[in-house]
């Protein structure tokens, strides 16, 4: 699988990051190296192996449907870059 600048640009956009050209080159080279290294996994036959998503066999962990107190929004707005009138404010978003 080809790791190139175009792919890294695509990934950067997906993850909402941006790089200047020098950084892009550097990251592409590093990603190439890392990807080459992790591809050693392909030497292992995992044909009928089940994937592990959770290491412990836990199941059915539930919460009762009960209302607990919400947080005072002013406490959150204290850490917020911009808020007004009870809202978090962001630059105008054009509706989807």
């Amino acid at each position: 699988m080809k790791v190139d600048k175009k792919l890294v640009e695509y990934l950067a956009n997906l993850s909402r990051l941006e790089f200047d050209d020098t950084k892009l080159e550097e990251i592409t080279a590093q990603l190439k190296g890392i990807v080459k290294y992790v591809e050693k996994l392909n030497t292992l036959d995992t044909g009928d192996v089940a994937p592990t998503a959770h290491i412990l066999p836990l199941k059915n962990v539930f919460r009762k449907d009960e209302v607990t107190p919400s947080i005072n929004r002013d406490k959150i707005f204290k850490s917020s870059p911009e808020s007004d009138n009870g809202y978090f404010i962001v630059p105008r978003v054009i509706e989807e």
Binding site: G86, Y87, F88, I89, V90, R92, V93
Partner: peptide, 12 residues
């Protein structure tokens, strides 16, 4: 999202 709050969009 609520539009036109403080010149931007408000998030609730």
């Amino acid at each position: 999202l609520v539009h036109d709050v403080c010149g931007g969009s408000g998030v609730d």
